[in-house]
Design a protein around this nucleic acid. Structure first.
Length: 372
DNA sequence: GACACGTGGAG
DNA sequence: TCTCCAAGTGT
């Protein structure tokens, strides 16, 4: 009842374009409702650029909840950009294991080294310079410039895209609308408190202006929102449908040595799960390999047992179905030609939890080691 | 512009 | 079960 009344009323309200009053309302809301996050300083304090940068890299396409434990772990282990630059890349990858998008970890490490080697350990202070560093794109350059250095830069992430597209009732579908949304966001960016403005927009998108059922009743920008006035807020932003996800199939081998070591292999540096560890497996193809053909690629000569069941894992652009083979082998076992011996190594079973194993591999290993 | 690139939680 | 999506970047 209240909804229908509200819908009628708000359609008759003449709306002005969002402007300085909108920004003021947003910043007031932010001062009241601001979330306490590990990388945020108290109100009015400028945050440590290293912490802002580290958190922003981790937050790329990743939820706050998932990031927090990783952020705490990294900061404890590498408290400064110098410490991170001096770290072994494999240690950084191992610490990143489970967070996904592993090229971020490589670029994080590379970026730290560039900051130390070419900038004396100080992050550049401008959006333009930040944008030249590895792993820092348009969003992150603007975010760090605004949040850490107070530059009036305008980061546009998924949250801000959503808030802006609703605020201005942008109906053009993404990604074609990106430029328009960026321009509109820039038109709101205040000279003072640009960092707070960006974080307020993102907080609003994360908590109030949510994708499915936005909480317009408690939104500080309700009076300024054209999508809400039109009753189309839940339909925005418009996104083009994604392509269907194909399925790929593979067979992986869990070799358990009699002294409790497991055979792992380092993946090549580029591409999917680049530089991370895996248990040796066949290529991932469009269909299952017959067991006898798969066994041709066994990493060590052994009496392989087909583990019942299949491990299924969904990546961004395909789903993987993994069949597992398991074998117990003597300590003097050597690699076969198929295993890329130079990339293989035996790891004590109890050290696997700290190794650079991506989630899909932890899942596969757990499945293969389970009692059946 | 299009596509590769992870993972886990929400609905 | 299944789709969507979360503080994007690199090619």
């Amino acid at each position: 009842m209240r909804d229908s009344v509200g819908a009628v009323a708000r359609k008759q309200l003449p709306l002005r374009p969002a402007g300085p009053d909108t920004v003021a309302a947003l910043l007031d809301w932010y001062d009241r409702e601001r979330r306490d996050l590990p990388w945020r300083m108290r109100r009015g304090r400028r945050a440590d650029p290293y912490k802002v940068w580290l958190s922003e890299i981790m937050l790329q396409q990743t939820t706050v909840k998932a990031v927090i434990p990783f952020y705490e772990k990294f900061l404890l282990r590498w408290p400064t950009v110098e410490a991170l630059a001096a770290a072994d890349l494999d240690d950084v990858l191992a610490a990143w294991a489970g967070l996904g998008y592993y090229s971020r970890a490589r670029n994080l490490h590379k970026c730290a080294q560039v900051v130390v080697a070419e900038h004396g350990g100080r992050f550049p202070r401008t959006e333009a310079e930040l944008g030249t560093l590895p792993g820092i794109g348009p969003y992150t350059a603007a975010a760090v410039a605004a949040i850490a250095f107070g530059e009036a830069a305008t980061p546009v992430d998924g949250n801000i895209e959503r808030v802006v597209s609703r605020l201005f009732a942008v109906r053009r579908p993404l990604p074609a609308a990106k430029r328009e949304i960026k321009r509109l966001a820039e038109s709101l960016t205040p000279q003072r408190r640009a960092g707070d403005f960006a974080q307020a927009m993102m907080d609003l998108g994360a908590t109030v202006c949510s994708p499915k059922r936005p909480s317009c009743l408690v939104c500080p920008l309700q009076q300024d929102c054209h999508a809400h006035a039109l009753g189309i807020e839940a339909q925005l932003p418009v996104k083009l449908a994604r392509a269907e996800r194909p399925v790929r199939f593979g067979t992986a081998f869990l070799a358990l040595r009699e002294d409790g070591h497991v055979l792992v292999r380092k993946r090549r540096e580029a591409g999917l799960l680049g530089g991370m560890l895996e248990i040796p497996s066949t290529d991932w193809g469009d269909d299952w390999l017959q067991a006898d053909l798969a066994l041709v690629q066994q990493p060590v000569r052994a009496d392989w047992w087909a583990v019942p069941g299949v491990v299924s894992h969904t990546f961004t652009h395909f789903r993987l179905e993994l069949q597992l083979f398991r074998a117990i082998v003597p300590v003097d076992t050597s690699m076969t030609f198929w295993a890329s011996p130079e990339r293989c190594r035996w790891v004590p079973r109890h050290e696997l939890s700290n190794a650079a194993l991506p989630s899909v591999m932890k899942k596969a290993i757990a499945h293969a080691l389970r009692e059946h």
